[in-house]
Structures are given as structure tokens and as C-alpha cells.
Simulated scan of single mutants.
Amino acid sequence: MIDRPILVFDLDDTLYLERDFVRSGFRAVGTHVAQTEGIAGFGEACWELFDSGTRSKVFDAALARAGLPQDEDGIARLVDIYRNHSPEIALANDAAAFLSGGDRSTRAIITDGPEKTQKAKIASLRIGGDFGLILTTGSWPAGYGKPHIRAFSQIMNWSGAPPEQHVYIADNPAKDFLAPRQLGWRSIQVNRPGRIHDPVPPAAPYAAEAEVASFDELPRIIGGFT
């Protein structure tokens, strides 16, 4: 068993369901469109497109469906509202239970995405006090998000612990586990029902060491690491 493991978490689809943020953002955009264009149901149309598998140009498609112009400035405004709204999200029940105990000095977060957006999520989830360090890679220049090693190296500088004492707990094998594995960390992939990203790693070096469906399984998995 690892002595005093340093548990480092991703945010989206790890501590809460990212689709809840998406739906919250679409509601905010829908409110804006209703107020400015007098058209109801825009947020619902965006969600319907997303839920059916559309992952890019959702606003373009929803604007076309509503008979509204798809100009660049208008879409940029919708994106800004989406990214910077006050999200209505909540921790997954198992994550809330897991975080209710433990030592914040051994817990951290690494999360990609626009800094303001990620900080708004953290504030809405009310978890800022549950972690000793929270790194939002969006505060750095482009290119330093995962799978770059910068954030993981900074975590080790903060903890002062050897690489093998760190465990990264995240959901997206396309980018989450490559860097920590290269540094000698342990890794656990969380496969939540309703997650957005493909749980299948693109190649062996991208795979996590273990997989769980719930944080309820974490103590057993972490306890088995040696």
C-alpha cells in the first residue's frame, strides 16, 4: 500500500458530470436568445443537438434551426455567455462522500479549460476548501494543458513526495494519463455513466492503470497499489 498517497483529481466528468455544465450553459444561452430575439426554446434545441451526438458547431446548427443569422460575432457572444455563466452543477454523490473526509494537504486538482470557466465550476461545486492545490491549466499559455507534464511536475513540487506516491484520478484517456504515467505516477480512470468522452484509450501508453465506475471503489484500488 502507498504510504500517504497524494490524490490528484481531474474536474469534468470526474468530480461531477460535465453534461450538467453543458445543459446549464445552454439554459443561459437560451435565456439570452429569448430576451434579445424573442424566440423561446433555443437552449432546449442546443441540448437536443448535443444529446443526439453533435459536439461541434452546436450554436450554428441551433441558429439555423431557429431561422436566425449565423454571423461570427453573434456566435462568439453565445460562446462567451456559455463559458462565463454561473453554472448550476453539483458533485456526484460518490465524489461528495469521498471528499467529505480526508486530508486536504494530500489532495489536488488539475483541470483543463478556460480559467474563468473552471474557477466558476469549482466555486459552484463549493470544493475550493477541499484541496490543497488547484491548477487550472487555462491560466497558462496555450500548449501547457494535458497531456503536457507542467501541471504534474508542479504538483510534485508542491507535495514534495516521490512520483510513485501520486495517483491521478480522471476520465479521459485521450489526454489525462499519458503525462503522469511518464512521470511514474499511478492512475485511475473513472467511467461515470453519462460521461462525454470515449473511455477507450487511443494507445497503450494512454491507458490508466486501473478503472472504476464510482469513487466508492477508490479505497480498494488505492489500497492495492504498492
Score class of each variant (00 low, 15 high):
residue 205 P to S: 08
residue 142 A to K: 12
residue 99 L to C: 08
residue 128 G to I: 00
residue 179 A to H: 04
residue 176 D to G: 06
residue 180 P to V: 10
residue 189 Q to H: 14
residue 98 F to Y: 15
residue 140 W to G: 00
residue 152 F to P: 07
residue 176 D to S: 06
residue 203 A to T: 06
residue 161 A to Y: 08
residue 122 I to W: 01
residue 154 Q to F: 02
residue 163 P to T: 09
residue 133 L to T: 08
residue 137 T to F: 01
residue 110 I to G: 09
residue 159 S to Q: 09
residue 180 P to I: 09
residue 131 F to H: 03
residue 194 G to T: 11
residue 173 P to Q: 08
residue 113 G to T: 10
residue 176 D to I: 05
residue 111 T to R: 07
residue 96 A to S: 13
residue 209 E to I: 03
residue 177 F to C: 06
residue 124 S to T: 11
residue 175 K to D: 00
residue 173 P to H: 07
residue 177 F to I: 09
residue 179 A to C: 04
residue 192 R to M: 02
residue 177 F to K: 02
residue 131 F to P: 06
residue 148 H to D: 15
residue 150 R to Q: 12
residue 99 L to Q: 08
residue 183 L to R: 11
residue 185 W to F: 14
residue 214 S to K: 10
residue 166 H to R: 01
residue 107 R to T: 07
residue 205 P to Y: 08
residue 135 L to Y: 00
residue 214 S to D: 12
residue 99 L to Y: 03
residue 220 R to I: 12
residue 99 L to A: 05
residue 142 A to G: 13
residue 192 R to P: 06
residue 160 G to F: 11
residue 177 F to R: 02
residue 122 I to Y: 01
residue 177 F to A: 03
residue 191 N to L: 14
residue 209 E to G: 15
residue 111 T to L: 08
residue 114 P to K: 09
residue 148 H to Y: 02
residue 133 L to W: 06
residue 109 I to H: 02
residue 147 P to R: 07
residue 155 I to F: 01
residue 108 A to K: 01
residue 221 I to P: 05
residue 110 I to Q: 10
residue 189 Q to D: 05
residue 142 A to D: 15
residue 172 N to T: 15
residue 103 D to R: 11
residue 95 A to R: 05
residue 207 A to H: 02
residue 135 L to V: 07
residue 204 A to E: 15
residue 136 T to F: 00
residue 172 N to S: 12
residue 138 G to Q: 03
residue 177 F to Q: 04
residue 194 G to K: 12
residue 99 L to T: 08
residue 96 A to I: 00
residue 157 N to P: 00
residue 182 Q to K: 14
residue 150 R to F: 06
residue 185 W to D: 06
residue 116 K to G: 00
residue 144 Y to S: 07
residue 147 P to E: 07
residue 214 S to T: 15
residue 116 K to E: 13
residue 224 G to P: 07
residue 208 A to H: 03
residue 148 H to R: 02
residue 217 E to F: 00
residue 151 A to K: 06
residue 219 P to N: 05
residue 146 K to G: 05
residue 121 K to W: 04
residue 102 G to N: 05
residue 183 L to G: 09
residue 187 S to P: 10
residue 159 S to C: 11
residue 220 R to A: 15
residue 149 I to S: 13
residue 162 P to Y: 01
residue 197 H to I: 01
residue 152 F to C: 03
residue 151 A to M: 07
residue 213 A to C: 08
residue 138 G to P: 08
residue 205 P to F: 07
residue 195 R to I: 09
residue 225 F to I: 14
residue 184 G to K: 12
residue 172 N to A: 13
residue 116 K to H: 09
residue 215 F to H: 05
residue 194 G to F: 10
residue 178 L to G: 01
residue 141 P to M: 03
residue 142 A to W: 01
residue 164 E to F: 10
residue 161 A to N: 06
residue 98 F to W: 15
residue 105 S to T: 15
residue 164 E to N: 14
residue 180 P to S: 05
residue 113 G to W: 09
residue 102 G to I: 02
residue 159 S to K: 06
residue 132 G to V: 04
residue 148 H to P: 05
residue 160 G to I: 10
residue 220 R to Y: 03
